[in-house]
């Protein structure tokens, strides 16, 4: 009873917050259509305090930044939108358009095969769906086993269905939980300032190994004080100060 009350209160509270977030989205989109890009960005930012996110919110925010010629921020929010809805062709298209304006052209270090498979699964299904499917197949498997216990015998189709559910339950639960523990995309950030100096050591006097520019997506490996060890798309590593990075 208490759990039901708690669930009802929680659900109604979340519904109210989603309504507020939708209103924020609508106002920001209206400002975007009117060309008030800075205002639109400010309005979209209010959704952060509500604690909700959506692909449309991030996408429109990215468009506003793009119109203000802030390529780094635009890529940041387009990547967030893609993480929420990787199938939307508008997000994919816009990301390719904005990415074409990145000054740095690095060859991409190929990811391991299992990582690529994981990314395909995560982008096409999503972690939530994977876990939901896994739990569903798991319950079906349990049900079929109970049926087997109660009836003492099972037909061939029942047996095949049980194996099918068992296999899928294992695959989806393993995929979902492993993607939760080890995300498909590591801790990535995008360069949001015009240029960042990559140094060989976390020291402002250390020699400069590279210069990276706005829009480049880098992987964060370690933090030491204000310094961040990053990995470039080509696998090279170096230290930068974290001021010019925007977390994806």
């Amino acid at each position: 009873m208490l759990a039901c009350i708690f669930t009802l209160v929680y659900a109604s509270s979340a519904r109210a917050q989603i309504t507020d977030a939708t209103q924020v989205f609508d106002r920001g989109t209206q400002a975007l259509h009117q060309g008030a890009y800075s205002e639109a960005i400010t309005i979209f930012g209010k959704a952060d305090s509500l604690g909700f996110e959506s692909p449309g919110l991030y996408y429109n925010r990215a468009v506003a930044f793009y119109r203000l010629d802030q390529i780094g921020q635009s890529i940041r929010y387009l990547r967030r939108a893609r993480a929420l809805d990787g199938d939307d062709p508008r997000i994919q298209h816009s990301l390719s358009i904005v990415s074409a304006r990145i000054e740095d052209k690095y060859s991409e270090l190929p990811a391991p095969i299992w990582k690529r498979l994981q990314r395909i699964a995560v982008e096409s299904i999503g972690v939530n769906t994977m876990i939901a499917l896994g739990v569903g197949f798991y319950l079906a498997m349990i049900f079929l086993i109970i049926m087997r216990i109660r009836r003492a015998s099972e037909g061939p189709w029942q047996r095949r269905l049980k194996y099918f559910c068992t296999l899928n339950a294992f695959l989806f639960l393993f995929g979902g939980f492993s993607s939760s523990v080890w995300p498909a995309y590591p801790d990535e950030s995008v360069v949001v300032t015009a240029e960042l100096l990559v140094r060989e050591q976390p020291d402002s006097d250390a020699s400069i190994s590279d210069r990276i520019h706005e829009g480049l997506v880098v992987s964060l490996l370690t933090r030491v004080g204000d310094w961040v060890l990053i990995q470039l798309p080509n696998g090279a590593q170096g230290w930068i100060t974290g001021d010019g990075l925007g977390a994806i």
Partner: peptide
């Protein structure tokens, strides 16, 4: 979709999810 520009803004926000969800 336009050839040399980003796509038009979304008119619908899409599915709302919790920001920074707790890992499963």
């Amino acid at each position: 979709l336009p050839v040399d520009d980003v796509a038009a803004p979304f008119s619908q926000a899409g599915d709302w999810t919790r920001l920074n969800p707790v890992p499963y």
